[in-house]
Design a protein around this nucleic acid. Sequence first.
DNA 1: GAGTGGTCTAGACCACTGC
DNA 2: CAGTGGTCTAGACCACTCG
Lengths: 242, 242
Amino acid sequence: MPRESPTFSPLYRQIKSLIGRALESGEWRPGASIPSEVELAQRFRVSQGTVRKAIDEMAAENLLVRRQGKGTFVASHDDPRTHFRFLRLMPNSGAVEAPLSVPLECLRAKAGQEVARVLGIEPGAPVILIRRVLKFADRPTVIEEIYLRGEAFPGLNLAILKEAHRSLYSLFEVRFGVRMVRAEERLRAVAADRGSAELLGVAEGTALLSVERIAFSYGDKAMEWRRGLYVTREHFYHNELS
Amino acid sequence: MPRESPTFSPLYRQIKSLIGRALESGEWRPGASIPSEVELAQRFRVSQGTVRKAIDEMAAENLLVRRQGKGTFVASHDDPRTHFRFLRLMPNSGAVEAPLSVPLECLRAKAGQEVARVLGIEPGAPVILIRRVLKFADRPTVIEEIYLRGEAFPGLNLAILKEAHRSLYSLFEVRFGVRMVRAEERLRAVAADRGSAELLGVAEGTALLSVERIAFSYGDKAMEWRRGLYVTREHFYHNELS
DNA sequence: GAGTGGTCTAGACCACTGC
DNA sequence: CAGTGGTCTAGACCACTCG
């Protein structure tokens, strides 16, 4: 028997993509609550169980957060519980500690070949370049170069970065409505060049952990490309495999 | 109103832990199929939906694998689809390629302080130490020191390692019934010492990616501690954040 | 107490696999 | 065709939060 519907898609997946589109369109902002299951079931003309299954999957993907008795919320980097999902650097011993971000530069530029390819934009399109240092316990531990899609962050400048006492991704959400949903990282070990060594207070040639990241917003749209150099003497990069 | 049942646990969680215990006890071996949902529902005296929810969660945790029309199976490292979940080294360009494992040593020893602590065993308890090299495209790229709980791998020796043309974790499953369920890794950048540099064919002092791993079997029992040193000139360590 | 998500059930039907 | 997992529904009841 031939498959009659090669594009078969269950109802709950369609609901999922409808909710996904609502998220993309900004109908509900990060941290805000979405309508209750019964309301959504009425809106989409399906049973509550079908909405439930759609939401379950989106919660598993960290797009939504369920809180019994309160409602379902759009996931946000403001939530401290999800705060260390993207920063994997842990101290060798002692309690985890939020780093202090020290922005150095915030420049507007035109995308070169490589940045354009990674972000999926045209060469020459506007980008923003941020350079910063992260300090743990007052010690410079990470330096980062961050490229952003220029059109998505109008008005972003060094002053804003310096004022903001929250994580970068929190700032992006609150100020620009841009939520980073997932990211891919590539890790390598490299030797510190002169400039990096100076900023990090280590000897030239010291082994550093290079972390390249592409971060995606809703719809798998690449919004950010960054490269970090981590000093891993007092810290390590933590990863869970399962 | 005070909580009357602070230890409230839904039915499906109890089913989950029953299935989990059956897995631990080896009632169903890795790769084998478990009873159908209706059978399990009858056995546990619950509805099929409740069994379903339990299995759903265990599939999400990579303990079980569902295959529509065929049944539900105990997850296995033999399955090529899950083969690269624990080996995160990818080539800078070109297709992914399985490495060639070259075992160098396989020794029986007594656990020292550190290994005992990590594996949760008594100092002096038997352990196995394996040293090996992984080659990609005929180039040594990774060296590893692997400590195993001695009592769980009776008879393991260098000859067995050399004969086995499968991944280490596959071997553990097929030969010893030990399945690694999850692992924690700590990554750092370090400089190559003389011995490592020689084995890897790089200059002394070259920056290497140090990957420490603790691997756990069912019941979160630490079975393995390993440290790898990766050459990251032609490869990178890949990670997904979400 | 009203409203939310969470659990559990029972039943009907669909999609996929293999004999 | 029988057997498996996958979807969808409807309804009852439970646990949690807040006013």
